[in-house]
Design a protein around this nucleic acid. Structure first.
Lengths: 135, 135
DNA sequence: TATAAATTTGTAATCAATACAAATTGGATT
DNA sequence: AATCCAATTTGTATTGATTACAAATTTATA
């Protein structure tokens, strides 16, 4: 974290550990809910501030895969994502993500995002098939 | 539109024509603003309802490229998108978009989205380089 | 024309994200 | 250790896109 020019505080360390120890592609709210029990003084604003800081510094990525919520990823190796349109879970797609950017004169491409949408194994096995986004 | 099982109303025709006649990947608000002068009784709720209807019927696509606004696309051929992180404009990337979905047992992939982020030619030539999202 | 169904409209509510100012913390200096 | 300043954190208030909902309007059908 120090290498990215960011002073490590208790809150920032907690957020980064949350991001790196899980593969749940959390929303800011999920992070807050996960950390709040152990850190009762934590505020949601700090979570948002910290996440923006991390994204600017390249310690995390902001995914635009979910229209409802901004989602974050602390795992930086290039990879693609799958989101279940029924339950909203996001997962890493294995064995993909090392493609080059297309050549497009005049356009300066810095980052790419590949998202797949569909039904995850859990939801395919559910009986109540038409209950979208049950949160 | 009738082929998709949707009754064509004046409002729906106007929204579909807006979508198909432009390549601006509009937000609901942009569509409303574009149509309202010619159709003063149009309500924003109708625009939202119509867009959801179109997406469900496969007449349009909802892009999750922009975290701030839901964006819509009436051009259905497979293609990738570029969004300028400075001005927010979305453009179609030429000559891309016909890739197959990856094989992933248990996961039912229905749709994919490829997004590139960076700076567009207009913004590269702008002098005020650090004025993000000037709308 | 009368009736029912579908569509549209406007207002109110929701909810993620941001703005902002006060409070707190941490580090440097004496 | 005490003081000061800057950075960080916190809580509250606000914003703004989207949705909920019920009333009004339009359309289709008999």
């Amino acid at each position: 974290m120090r290498a990215a020019g960011i002073k490590p505080s208790l809150q920032r360390i907690a957020v980064l550990e949350y991001l790196c120890s899980r593969y749940n592609h959390p929303t800011a709210d999920m992070i807050y809910a996960g950390l709040h029990p152990q850190m009762p003084t934590l505020s949601k604003t700090t979570v948002y501030n910290t996440l923006r800081l991390f994204c600017q510094a390249g310690l995390a990525t902001s995914l635009s895969i979910d229209c409802q919520n901004q989602r974050f990823d602390g795992h930086l190796h290039p990879h693609h994502h799958f989101i279940c349109t029924r339950c909203g879970k996001v997962a890493d797609v294995p064995g993909q993500g090392k493609e080059a950017f297309p050549e497009w004169p005049g356009y300066e491409i810095e980052r790419s995002e590949v998202s797949y949408f569909g039904i995850c194994p859990d939801c395919r096995n559910e009986p109540d098939a038409d209950n979208p986004h049950k949160k």
